[in-house]
Design a protein around this nucleic acid. Structure first.
Length: 176
DNA sequence: CCAATGATTGTTTAA
DNA sequence: TTAAACAATCATTGG
């Protein structure tokens, strides 16, 4: 066995409708996020048990909504410099997001799609690393001074923003 | 003092 | 196909 002691349940989104009706009912109840990475003290980086902490693990690409939010948040802050909770922007952003036409989301989706492509690329690189790591599969614990043979792992560090903003006019505006 | 929470929707992924 | 988890953000709160 080996049961994961800390993580047992998956309490995140306790919504009701979603289970019965997978459609966008726009009735969100407060979906919370309960995620506990490891123990406490963030910088620990120590893995007493089994901490699969992948520093290279690429995070999920932001959805069109998030891309929109990034900009929206900035704007919202200007109009509401006294905003206190992040939820305020979330609510306002979500509300407006729904208010926008699909065509207006297109540019956001496009950017999000691009982000996704990068994600896949990162995933490939991450995958490769995993493979290399699998070779040794050494339980590097505590000491962590094992440098291993860090041959050149290619400098695939994410930092390549293709700034090609010219061909963004291919949008077939689907007017509804 | 640090971690977690709250709120939004979309995507990602495992089963 | 579905259900669930997680992506950013940041002030506030709790342990």
């Amino acid at each position: 066995m080996k049961v994961a002691k800390g993580k047992g349940a998956a309490p995140r989104r306790d919504n009701k409708k979603e289970a019965l009706k997978p459609v966008e009912d726009s009735k969100l109840g407060k979906r919370k996020a309960a995620v506990k990475p490891n123990k406490s003290t963030k910088k620990v980086a120590k893995k007493d048990e089994v901490a699969k902490k992948d520093p290279n693990k690429p995070k999920r690409p932001p959805s069109a909504f998030f891309v929109f939010l990034e900009e929206f948040r900035k704007v919202y802050k200007e109009e509401h410099p006294n905003v206190k909770a992040v939820s305020a922007v979330g609510k306002a952003g979500g509300e407006k997001w729904k208010s926008m036409s699909k065509a207006e989301k297109v540019p956001y989706e496009t950017k999000a799609a691009k982000r996704k492509l990068d994600y896949e690329k990162l995933m490939t690189a991450y995958n490769k690393k995993q493979e290399t790591a699998a070779e040794e599969e050494d339980d590097d614990v505590g000491d962590g001074e094992s440098e291993k043979s860090k041959s050149e792992v290619s400098h695939e560090e994410e930092e390549e923003t293709a700034e090609d903003d010219d061909d963004e006019d291919d949008d077939d505006e689907d007017d509804d």
